[in-house]
Design a binder for these strands. Structure first.
Lengths: 233, 233
DNA sequence: CAGTGGTCTAGACCACTCT
DNA sequence: GAGTGGTCTAGACCACTGA
């Protein structure tokens, strides 16, 4: 584990534990240097991560301050699996595997010069508080993962990739649109009328630059919320 | 202008000009050190910004590579004004000022302990290719900007804050939800039936930590698209 | 093996804020 | 003036890649 990562994790834990409540000032760069016996750039890197993630705000000449966090929301600003999300929000969550089939990457993802790209399609339905709210269609490229035999209820695709196959996911590109519910959505989510669906399509990159999968995550729009923190450039 | 900012801007320009096309390799850290006569950490900072913005991807032992960019989309991953967006996408855009009135920050923003917070409400409607697609409700805090007399068609709120009032915007927090169109939406956008509306609510922070404004930006859902690039943490 | 990116150090000077 | 964050330097060692 890197030094700046350790400092970051420890500071974040202290923020979540309430040691640094809203608007509280974090230790200064120099205080962190002394506490962790590191160079200043190392302590700054840890704090820079917290800034990136929207936990704190740095103000020149004043200090580093904790920002009030709204919770209970879906993140879209970083790559996070459904399981990680549910754990973070402490929601009662359940996932049901619907099917694993041979397939191709759908053309909506605009990948591969109109030639069919073989993939394994995984369809799952996500429940929050016993209500079906998300349908995930994953297309895992056979070039990278030749076969997915089974998928335990308790294992996410990310966990499969990273822990069992030793692959490292580093980037994702997402598009968000709102579309009418299709027949599958209505059936699986038990929707009477046509509720709009928030569709998040993402392509996931490994750290060697290869694409490993395309995902279409379809959320009931009336249960969808995203919170995002951003700096001005 | 900082050195790393200059390097960043120059590299970005070269990417956009096609000097570094898709999948091309950017100069290495050491090449940039020589070209710009800077320390390695300085050149790395410039490239780190490009990574943050999703233009390039760094792969250990291999190099830094340009990532294929999809465009024509609304950004939500950084603070950007409507005008900056339209300019970047080269769209035919037009803004119509509807009203400037005394008001209070609506309770939906959950600001200020249930006490009324005085603000100036600015309502505008945004046209893309002559079609009304966005309605913006801005609530500018009177504590920070006591009065907004008028707002030229050609000036955005951000420009007013930054260039005329000398304020510096540094952060924004956004929430995205999907809600039914209300009567105002339908009237202003000329919608017959109830199209869903993508509602982006944001609070904007100055570099001294004060909130300057709350904004509710209401987009026709069928014209909304967002693209986002994110690293895994 | 040479080249790449990732981390880290121990300084330095600056601009800004607060008292 | 003391304290803060912002930038920058000139090194160092490491892990990983590809020929």
């Amino acid at each position: 584990m890197n030094k700046y990562q350790i400092i970051h994790d420890e500071l974040l834990k202290e923020i979540n534990d309430g040691k640094y409540p809203n608007n509280a000032m974090l230790p200064s760069d120099f205080a962190l240097m002394n506490r962790y016996h590191v160079a200043r750039e190392t302590s700054r890197k840890a704090v820079a991560m917290l800034v990136d993630e929207g936990y704190v705000m740095r103000i020149k000449g004043r200090g580093t301050f904790v920002i009030n966090q709204n919770r209970y929301s879906f993140p879209i600003s970083h790559v996070e699996s459904y399981r990680e999300l549910a754990a973070r929000l402490k929601l009662d969550e359940r996932t049901q595997l619907l099917s694993i089939t041979d397939s191709e990457v759908p053309s909506v993802f605009e990948y591969g010069d109109d030639t069919a790209v073989p993939a394994t399609a995984v369809v799952r339905i996500r429940y929050l508080d016993n209500e079906p709210v998300i349908i995930d269609h994953d297309y895992v490229l056979k070039d990278v993962v030749p076969e997915i035999k089974k998928l335990s209820q308790s294992v996410s695709l990310f966990e499969l990739f990273e822990q069992q196959l030793g692959l490292v996911i580093s980037y994702a590109k997402k598009t968000i649109t709102v579309e009418p519910a299709n027949a599958t959505d209505r059936q699986l989510m038990g929707l009477a009328e046509s509720i709009p669906i928030v569709v998040i399509r993402s392509e996931t990159f490994l750290n060697d630059g290869r694409i490993i999968s395309f995902t279409e995550s379809r959320h009931r729009a009336d249960r969808f919320k995203s919170v995002e923190f951003s700096r001005r450039h």
